[in-house]
Amino acid sequence: MQKILIPTDFSENAWNAIDYAMQLFRNKRCTFYLLNTYTPVIPSSRFMAKMIDGVSIVDAVRETSERGLQKTVQRIKTKYGNPNHRFETISSFNLLVEEVKDVVETFGIHLVITGTKGASGVDEVFMGSNTVRIIKTTKKCPILAIPYHFEYVTPTEIAFATDFNRFYTTSELEPLLQMAKMFNATVRIVHVQYGIKALTELQQFNLNMLRRYLGDVEHYVHTVSELSSVSHTLETFSKELGIHLLAMLNYQHSYMEKMTREPIIKRTAFHTQIPLLVIPELGMEGVASTEKEEEPSVEAHN
Rank of each mutant, 00 (worst) to 15 (best):
M1Q: 05
I4Q: 01
I4S: 02
D9K: 11
N13Y: 04
N16M: 01
Y20E: 07
M22N: 12
M22E: 15
Q23L: 10
F25I: 05
K28M: 05
L34R: 06
T39A: 07
V41R: 05
I42T: 14
S45F: 09
R46W: 05
R46T: 12
M48A: 15
I52D: 10
I57L: 11
V58Y: 01
A60L: 14
V61S: 11
T64D: 11
R67W: 03
R67Y: 12
L69F: 06
V73E: 06
Q74R: 10
K77E: 15
K79V: 09
N84P: 03
H85P: 10
F87A: 14
E88S: 05
T89Y: 01
I90P: 00
S91K: 04
F93C: 07
V97A: 00
V100Q: 05
V103G: 02
V104L: 04
T106L: 04
G108V: 06
L111P: 03
V112A: 07
G118L: 07
G118K: 04
A119Y: 01
S120C: 03
G128L: 09
V132G: 05
V132P: 00
I134W: 02
I135E: 05
T137P: 00
T137K: 13
K139T: 14
K140G: 07
K140D: 14
C141A: 08
L144R: 02
P147D: 12
E151Y: 07
T154Y: 01
I158T: 02
N165P: 00
Y168L: 15
P175Y: 08
M179S: 07
T186L: 02
R188H: 15
I189G: 04
I189M: 10
Q193T: 12
T200Y: 00
L202E: 14
Q203L: 04
F205P: 00
N206G: 06
L207H: 03
L207Q: 11
N208H: 10
M209R: 08
R211L: 13
D216G: 03
D216K: 07
D216N: 13
E218I: 07
V221R: 03
H222V: 03
E226W: 01
L227M: 12
S231A: 15
S231W: 02
H232E: 15
L241D: 03
H244G: 05
H244M: 06
Y251P: 00
H253S: 11
S254D: 04
Y255I: 04
E257V: 11
E257W: 01
K258R: 13
M259T: 10
T260W: 00
R267Y: 05
T268G: 00
T268A: 08
F270W: 12
H271T: 15
H271E: 09
T272S: 04
I274E: 00
V278G: 06
P280C: 15
G283A: 08
G286S: 12
S289Q: 13
E294Q: 13
E295L: 13
E295T: 12
P296R: 09
P296E: 06
S297T: 13
S297F: 04
